[in-house]
Nucleic acid binder design. Structure first.
Length: 412
RNA sequence: GUGGUUGUAGCUCAAUUGGUUAGAGCAUCGGUUUGUGGAACCGAAGGCUACGGGUUCAAGUCCCGCCAGCCACCCCA
């Protein structure tokens, strides 16, 4: 009986692993140029952290978390997203006091028990950034732009930036009431919408079945208070000033409870229904709610596998990759195996010390030279160094260029 | 969690509609006289048809279950 990878997980191998590493490299390099610092948080946390930050009523907390008890009966959960952990660390290390304007990013695996689909996995990789202590619309704009830049840098075209404002607690409450009133007058809501009306009326705006019935639904923008409205408009002007196109989407609401004011999603038509490649927003109350100082915050999270899926134009990617020069060591005479082996170890070590971008394949015995050269081809070796008795006794090796088929002698 | 759909060799697919021993291409491995590669030719290996039941003289093919992938919903990155 063979054992398979659990549902919704996968082995990333070969070219996909390369792409993944390269994607991470590009993202980190963009983030660090915008002064975000990396932070690595635990992969599991106290269950209550997620319940309090993401919200008890959300699906993520309600039915998608991997929850378990440790040997002392402590309730823990595999992280379903990154923001909660980061905020926890920010408060725990008292960065809200010592470094209130901190800018951080993370890159790692998240876990959600969902039904898998292309671009949706139970273990998935996210890269995200959080910008603390800055309530300025410029912070919102920078976060959105940074997420868009990462996607663009890996060759994703036609990124649709959707943006909305959820307002502050006051204006959201008014909007919520108006929505409840509006929807209560509609009789033939779908089953899901009836539940949403109870749990989270904002989510009705998202419904794909009933959307047609909501032609004259109240718009959030009409309920924003003066401050929130100014703030939203400033974010939009900043995006325009930096030449980023966007669509205002009054129906955009996010599934996590902690958002305030700006929310956004970056979509691509290059994938199926799982088209949100990155998303995020402002959450000015979360740090305080989790026990820190009142601290403004805004961030995004980006789904790496989804981004990979959307990045069909992968050539741009690999153009940037500096492939190492592959060197294969062959032996024409089997009794030179020890010398050849030691030599291969030696040059790979020197390559590391001198920072030379090479990869060395040590020799193996039992094979004819013909087969060794075939193998060199298969692995796409650039050079083959052959240990041959006659030349070796003169202190020489044969260096074969696999592309040009030319062969020269080199000193041992 | 709901509905739909698919599952045959490492990969892409066949198998005359229920009928002998499940085939092919690519990939793999070996060989073509042994110190020189990509081609060509010859050969080999590789399958309890995802898994488990059932119907039938007979099941890769039909039925049920189960697992997994995909599509949409739900949700979300």
């Amino acid at each position: 009986m063979t054992i398979n990878a659990p549902r919704g997980t996968r082995d990333i191998i070969g070219i996909d692993a390369l792409r993944m590493s390269e994607f991470e490299r590009i993202a980190k390099s963009i983030l660090s140029r915008r002064a975000f610092e990396e932070i690595r948080t635990p992969i599991f946390e106290d269950l209550s952290l997620f319940v309090r930050s993401i919200g008890e009523a959300t699906d993520i907390v309600g039915k998608e978390m991997y929850v378990f008890e440790d040997k002392k009966g402590k309730k823990l959960a595999l992280r379903p997203e990154g923001t909660a952990s980061l905020v926890r660390a920010y408060i725990e290390r008292r960065l809200d006091i010592s470094e209130p304007a901190g800018k951080f990013f993370y890159s790692g695996e998240m876990f959600r028990y969902e039904r898998p689909q292309a671009g949706r996995y139970r273990q998935f990789h996210q890269i995200g950034a959080e910008l603390f202590g800055n309530a300025s619309p410029a912070a919102d704009a920078e976060i959105i732009i940074t997420a868009a830049d990462i996607l663009a840098a890996v060759g994703i075209k036609d990124i649709d930036i959707r943006i909305n404002s959820l307002g502050c607690q006051e204006c959201r409450a008014k909007f919520r009431e108006a929505l409840i009133k509006y929807f209560s007058d509609i009789n033939d809501l779908c089953e899901d919408c009836k539940i949403r009306l109870e749990k989270n009326p904002l989510r009705l705006l998202d419904c794909k079945i009933d959307a047609a019935k909501f032609a004259d639904v109240p718009q959030m923008t009409d309920f924003l208070c003066v401050d929130c409205k100014d703030n939203f408009n400033s974010v939009l002007s900043l995006l325009k000033a930096a030449n980023y196109n966007f669509t205002i989407d009054g129906k955009l609401v996010r599934g996590l409870d902690y958002y305030t004011r700006t929310v956004f999603e970056l979509r691509s038509s290059a994938v199926g229904a799982q088209d949100a490649l990155a998303a995020g927003g402002r959450y000015d109350n979360l740090v305080k709610e989790l026990g820190g100082q009142q601290t403004a915050a805004v961030g995004f999270a980006l789904g790496s596998q989804r981004a990979m899926l959307a990045a069909q134009n992968t050539s741009a990617f690999f153009d940037k990759l500096q492939r190492p020069e592959k060197i294969f060591i062959a032996i024409a005479d089997e009794d030179l195996i020890e010398q050849a082996f030691a030599y291969s170890i030696k040059i790979s070590k020197e390559g590391f010390q001198n920072n030379k971008n090479i990869s060395v394949y040590p020799p193996f015995s039992n094979k004819k030279l013909t087969n060794q050269l075939k193998f060199a081809d298969k692995i796409n070796a650039d050079k083959t160094i052959i240990f041959a008795k006659t030349e070796y006794e003169q202190g020489k090796l044969l260096l074969k260029d696999m592309q040009t088929k030319t062969q020269t002698e080199i000193a041992l």
